[in-house]
């Protein structure tokens, strides 16, 4: 096993930590800023990935589509009131080429609704591609491959 460049490792882990906290704090408008303009964000069931099937519950292939998601969430969509809590593992850097880094990290998103019980809402892994420019990382693509096939009620807030 090779040890990833500690600088790259730090950039990726820092982005992941900030990303989780951003969503958990409800700062949804800041969330698209973790991505480059021409990005891909998808949330897809592991059973689909394992069977080579492409259907995702969220599939956004531009930053504009991420913004549209947030606007819809704020103004249109109706869903159970809740808090999210992301627990994200240290990333495993799987490759790097020039400015591009690929990495994977496990996550668990806990959800707390108005009844006050905290439930494991969605567990899975991020499969990511980052662009490193001027010492900061941005997501070129993030695929959330979820194990929790049975989505409780609905999935409104990004993972």
């Amino acid at each position: 096993m090779t040890i990833a460049d500690p600088v790259l490792q730090g950039l990726v882990d820092s982005l992941n930590a900030a990303y989780g906290l951003c969503l958990d704090d409800g700062r949804l408008e800041e969330w698209p800023e973790f991505f480059v303009e021409d990005c891909l964000y998808q949330v897809i069931a592991r059973e689909n990935v394992d069977n080579g099937l492409p259907a995702a519950v969220m599939y956004c292939d531009s930053k504009g589509m991420l913004v549209d998601r947030v606007v819809a969430l704020r103004h249109a969509n109706v869903f159970p009131e809740h808090f999210s809590r992301h627990l994200i593992s240290r990333a495993v850097v799987t490759g790097s080429d020039g400015n591009t880094v690929t990495a994977e990290a496990s996550y668990a998103v806990l959800q707390t609704r108005n009844d006050g019980e905290t439930r494991i809402y969605n567990a899975g892994k991020y499969v990511d591609r980052f662009l490193i420019t001027d010492g900061t990382a941005k997501l070129v693509s993030r695929t959330c491959v979820y194990d929790t096939h049975r989505i409780a009620t609905l999935l409104a807030t990004p993972i």
């Binding site: 519950v57 589509m65 249109a76 969509n77 109706v78 869903f79 609905l154 999935l155 409104a156």
Partner: peptide, 16 residues
Amino acid sequence: LNLVGPSGLISMEDGE
């Protein structure tokens, strides 16, 4: 598909 399903922008409310 963003429009439909458990995260459907025009339909997720049905679950709620």
